[in-house]
């Protein structure tokens, strides 16, 4: 086997893992800091993608369309938290059902608004070559985007007062209130940030993954599993899980077929959950 082939496989697998991480981070934040599994996460990603697409169609340049998508999804997220999620705290399965239903509504709304086929955003494709193999520059750039996004969320949650309040609220909810933390306001913001991260993912991935009403489903399943395998130390756990599962599946897929890659993903997930029922990070002593 040649070196250029190995490097190509490595880079594209790392890129797949990064794309999974980008799509999952918002889910990890909401689960890790609120204990809520947002099954509409994939649909928020889709809303982000359509927001960015619509923004470019009315003439906003693509780099500015990304913040538009983030703000839109954050606003919708805040409204959803105020109207639905906050009535269901501590009821994990009820929140899952409610957000699942919400996802369907979003999905159908997108079908009605945009139809089932969407135009791409028509960005020029840049490729570069490693030996005899050609790689899409944008996909590889996602490795950098994932790293920056991870660092941003980590700093937000560890260096700001909001981040401290959010972590205190999930670790000891009653004590957090007793020392004066307004948990409900913190939770609204956390949910909005989680949805904003989904919106960012949808927008930044738009050049590689075109907007379709059902695009959320693919990410919802893998993202959900990643977060559950990661466990309570949500950020580090999810990063490692995305790298291991997503990267591993992608490596497997490049040597065999994409079906075998998916089989790898789900088998390893099942194995990890059997070994660590509370997630791989259940016993870690880390902040996030």
């Amino acid at each position: 086997m040649e070196l250029d082939y190995l490097v190509t496989v490595l880079l594209s697998s790392l890129s797949s893992a990064s794309i999974l991480l980008i799509a999952t981070l918002g889910l990890a934040v909401v689960y890790g800091l609120m204990g809520v599994i947002n099954l509409a996460h994939g649909e928020f990603l889709m809303v982000g993608a359509y927001s960015a697409l619509t923004a470019t169609q009315i003439g906003i340049p693509y780099p500015l369309a990304i913040p538009v998508a983030v703000v839109t999804t954050m606003l919708i997220g805040a409204i959803v938290e105020l109207l639905i999620i906050r009535r269901l705290y501590g009821r994990l399965f009820d929140t899952m059902l409610a957000t699942w239903g919400l996802g369907m509504v979003f999905n159908q709304a997108a079908v009605l608004l945009f139809g089932t086929v969407s135009p791409g955003i028509g960005m020029p494709q840049y490729n570069f070559k490693i030996g005899g193999y050609s790689l899409a520059a944008y996909s590889i750039a996602m490795i950098l985007v994932a790293a920056v996004m991870l660092a941003f969320v980590y700093l937000l949650m560890t260096k700001t007062v909001y981040g401290m309040k959010a972590r205190a609220s999930i670790q000891e909810p009653k004590m957090a209130q007793a020392i004066g933390i307004d948990s409900s306001r913190v939770n609204t913001l956390t949910f909005a940030i989680g949805c904003g991260l989904a919106g960012f993912a949808g927008a930044i991935l738009l050049p590689i993954i075109p907007a379709t009403p059902s695009m959320g489903l693919f990410f919802a399943v893998k993202g959900f599993l990643t977060v559950v395998v990661a466990g309570p130390v949500a950020l580090t756990g999810s990063a490692l899980t995305a790298l291991g599962l997503g990267g591993g599946a992608s490596v497997t897929a490049s040597f065999m077929t994409s079906v075998v890659g998916d089989v790898f993903f789900f088998l390893v997930t099942a194995l990890l959950l059997w070994l660590y029922p509370m997630g791989i990070s259940a016993r870690w002593r880390r902040k996030l």
Binding site: K165, E172, I179, G180, I181, K287
Partner: peptide, 19 residues
């Protein structure tokens, strides 16, 4: 009921900042 995954400093800081 200290916040277990926060540092000693953060445990105190979050209480002060919240008020």
């Amino acid at each position: 009921f200290v916040f277990p995954r926060m540092t000693v400093t953060e445990n105190i800081a979050v209480a002060a900042a919240s008020n």
